[in-house]
Amino acid sequence: MTNRRGSRPGPGEREIDDSELMDVAQGPEQAHSLHKALRTLADNPNASGPLQEMAQGILSGRMGMTDAIKSERYMDALGDRMTEIRRAAESQTMEDREAEREKREQWERKRDEEEQKERAEHDGPSTNLVTGPKKRGRGGHRG
């Protein structure tokens, strides 16, 4: 599969598709969301270290999602990150919270627009529809 963003997967590697996350997802929509979250994590320069390594490993198919969930190293890193997020939220002022809320709403609108566009591209008609026999040669009608 072609890489849409970032540097993963490496040369000669492919990126998994949504169906390869169905062993941990509760349906195609959740698998798609998980895939997008892993891609975001893998491409995020602020997520360096074990979490980014985990996302890149799963996306390249070198590691399964269930293996990552069972890994103490990755789950500890996830727990540490969640603790950082909680501490940051606790220390926010009302102005900070309002600014974050506005950012989040803007991000959600953008995400919804992107998802609608993806669905339209996926569900929409193909631009390569064949409507009749292929014409051969340059000339007009054979008779």
Rank of each mutant, 00 (worst) to 15 (best):
A68M: 03
W107I: 01
H122Y: 06
M54T: 15
D123Q: 10
D80K: 14
S91F: 04
L21F: 01
Q52R: 10
R136Q: 07
D80R: 15
S126W: 07
R73A: 07
S7E: 14
E102H: 09
P11Y: 11
K134I: 15
T2E: 14
N3Q: 11
R5T: 12
S60D: 02
G64F: 05
I58A: 00
V130K: 04
A55L: 06
E114S: 11
N3E: 06
S71Y: 04
E121F: 03
G132C: 03
K134C: 12
G132W: 04
A89C: 02
A55M: 05
M54L: 15
D123C: 06
R8K: 13
L21D: 00
N3H: 14
Q52M: 08
L51H: 09
E53S: 14
E13P: 01
T127Q: 06
A89H: 07
R86E: 15
R119S: 02
M65W: 00
A55Q: 03
I85C: 04
P125N: 08
A31E: 01
A68F: 02
S60R: 02
G137T: 08
P28L: 04
P28H: 11
R138F: 12
G12S: 08
E98C: 06
S48R: 14
Q106N: 07
G57R: 01
G57D: 03
E29M: 13
G132F: 03
G143Y: 12
A120I: 04
K117Y: 11
L34D: 06
L78R: 09
D67F: 03
M22C: 03
I58K: 00
A25S: 13
R81N: 04
M22T: 08
R8A: 11
T40D: 15
P9L: 10
T93Q: 07
D112R: 08
E95N: 11
D112I: 06
R104I: 07
M94L: 07
K135D: 09
E90Y: 09
M75E: 14
E98V: 05
I58C: 00
K36F: 05
M54K: 10
R101M: 05
T83G: 05
Q52N: 12
R97P: 00
E115F: 03
M22I: 13
S33T: 13
T131I: 09
R4T: 10
Y74T: 02
I85A: 08
A120M: 15
T131K: 14
K36P: 00
R5P: 02
T131V: 05
P50Q: 15
G61F: 05
L59G: 01
I69H: 01
G124P: 04
H141W: 14
G64I: 00
K70W: 01
K134P: 01
I16N: 01
G64M: 09
G139V: 03
I85H: 03
M63E: 13
G140N: 11
E100S: 14
R81C: 06
L38G: 01
R142T: 12
N44K: 09
